[in-house]
């Protein structure tokens, strides 16, 4: 019974993984792709881990269940942070939004950050923008 429930949870997680990766291929620009893929694949992988943990609770050793839950917590914490950092880096390195985008809330703050960087003089912006 427990194994049946675990299999259902893992099946839903696998579907989320697949749809996230389809989004990664189909959507028009970096920001759309990052948000679709990150959210779907994070949830999907957490559900797979949850399924493994659920079956391991029925097994004689509970170590696997605890490790799986710990790994789920790590993925849930790190994956959105990484995607946020990459999107911020993408914006600051000058990747354009898709032409159908309706709002760009980060543009003013990005301008401030660029000015701070040029006054610091630690980085050559021209070189990173052409690269």
């Amino acid at each position: 019974m427990l194994e049946q429930i675990a299999m259902w949870i893992m099946g839903v997680g696998l579907a989320f993984d697949l749809f996230g990766c389809i989004g990664l291929v189909r959507l028009p620009d970096v920001y759309n792709r990052a948000q679709a893929a990150t959210k779907c694949v994070t949830l999907g992988t957490c559900m797979i881990l949850l399924g493994v943990a659920l079956r391991a609770f029925g097994a004689p050793d509970g170590a696997m269940a605890v490790k799986a839950l710990l790994c789920a917590a790590f993925v849930l914490l790190t994956s959105p942070v990484a995607a946020h950092a990459v999107c911020r880096g993408a914006y600051l390195s000058g990747v354009k939004l898709w032409e159908g985008s309706v709002e760009d809330s980060f543009s003013e703050r990005a301008e401030e950050i660029r000015q701070e960087q040029t006054t610091e003089g630690s980085v050559d912006r021209e070189e990173t923008e052409t690269a």
Binding site: L24, T45, A68, S79
Partner: peptide
């Protein structure tokens, strides 16, 4: 087509490898 695209895809690939490890454990 841009470097951030590849970076996001590599990040997602890393999360999928975690899923593979879980399936092997299963």
């Amino acid at each position: 087509p841009t470097a951030p695209d590849r970076t996001v895809a590599i990040d997602i690939l890393g999360t999928l490898v975690v899923g593979f490890c879980c399936l092997m454990a299963w």
